[in-house]
Design a protein around this nucleic acid. Structure first.
Lengths: 231, 231
DNA sequence: GTCTATATACCGATAGAC
DNA sequence: GTCTATCGGTATATAGAC
């Protein structure tokens, strides 16, 4: 099968902020004063998008709720119908956002018998998703330290989980003789580091007109030159 | 010559916050109310160290000057004898810190005729320095967006400069036939990304007992497997 | 369900005592 | 040179009108 293009990926994967907000709403009906689901979800989408946008520009802490009120078009009072504190808003986005990402990654990691193909697919899928949700990924990384300890732990586990997905494949390849790897954990770490650079330095790659497909192929080339048997 | 150890490096490179603060003091005698140089420099060191420490924990924006007062042991009033605003304090640390880093890198990049050796030295030097000053590097990265535009530009240029140091060597190696590189700029980007991971994810590597020497050698191995002629 | 107006607390910054 | 006390402003959060 030909390598998946970003266009194909973004057509297939519907990253739905609405779905994410609906999940949050249904799990917290009792805490949210607004009782009409469609109204609540629509406003939640607005709030979450505005928060991500402002936070990526100035940082979540520097963003005041007056800024958020202006950007979202909702009054201060209305905002507090949807969350109980500013800290709570941060936790909601982090927690529900990260689990949405994990679900999408899981759903889009097809079963694949060839270990090398599997690795390539995972790298592409991660990168394409981080392109679709670049502001979210940036937000997750930059705002971890503003979370309370409980949610910080969840955030760290999410970092380790994505690394684990990589290292599991590396491990399989090492066992079946397809890869030669001296240090699986460090190999996984640097693959993750290279993938992360895509959304942490988006300004740089955009300025240089590097497409996510070019970048993905490059990361795959670097990785394979390191772990594949030299012929 | 044998590869330099971190111990050797940290013995040779005196990263002196005092020196950095003295530079700042001498350039801004007129703005600083405290006139005894040794008193001023001593307190500046305390202030800068406390700022870095608190900012890495909670973020510069979330750190109040009352927090800084408590951590440094100086009163609010005393703090304002050393800088004119909170924003000013951030700029001082970013600007003087980054130029100190650039100077140290320049001073410690020995002339070297062998391109491959040169590349290895640069990777090691960058990583060892980012280990010595890990909180500073973390601070530089995380607090860029809180800077005003002028200093943001300086910060971006600093990012591009270190990448340029790498790509210049890659270019030389490509020209003299020592390296085979398809895309020099992207190669430089991912080398930088791998180096950056060392201080962005310090908690992870510490937890796993990965030493900076091990990490440096690993990055070098990954890089060389990608750019050296296969034999 | 959303608004305006307001309560309360803490922010950065400064004045003036010592 | 450093302190305490306090300023005005703005932050989060809420109460009550509509």
């Amino acid at each position: 099968m030909a390598d998946m293009s970003f266009q194909e990926f973004s057509g297939r994967v519907m990253v739905s902020v609405e779905e994410l907000c609906r999940d949050y709403y249904r799990e917290n009906r009792d805490l949210i004063r607004v009782k009409k689901e469609d109204v609540a979800v629509r406003n939640l989408v607005t709030i979450v998008n505005a928060t991500i946008k402002l936070s990526c520009r100035m940082g979540f802490d520097a963003m005041s709720l007056r800024d958020l009120s202006r950007e979202s078009g909702l009054s201060m009072g209305a905002l507090y119908s949807y969350f109980s504190s500013k800290e709570d808003l941060l936790s909601i986005i982090q927690c529900h956002g990260q689990s949405a990402v994990e679900r999408i990654l899981r759903d889009n990691t097809r079963q694949e018998s060839d270990t090398a193909v599997k690795l390539r697919n995972v790298i592409r899928t991660h990168l394409y998703l981080s392109e679709l949700m670049s502001q979210w990924f940036y937000f997750f990384f930059m705002e971890t330290k503003n979370l309370n300890k409980k949610y910080q732990k969840i955030s760290v586990e999410s970092e380790l989980l994505t690394e684990r997905i990589i290292t599991d494949i590396l491990d399989e390849g090492a066992k079946n003789g397809m890869f030669i790897i001296d240090n699986i954990q460090l190999t996984g770490s640097v693959i993750k580091a290279m993938m992360q650079d895509w959304y942490l330095k988006k300004w740089k790659y955009k300025q240089r007109n590097v497409s996510v497909e070019t970048y993905a192929q490059f990361i795959i080339d670097v990785t394979e030159s390191f772990i594949m048997k030299k012929t």
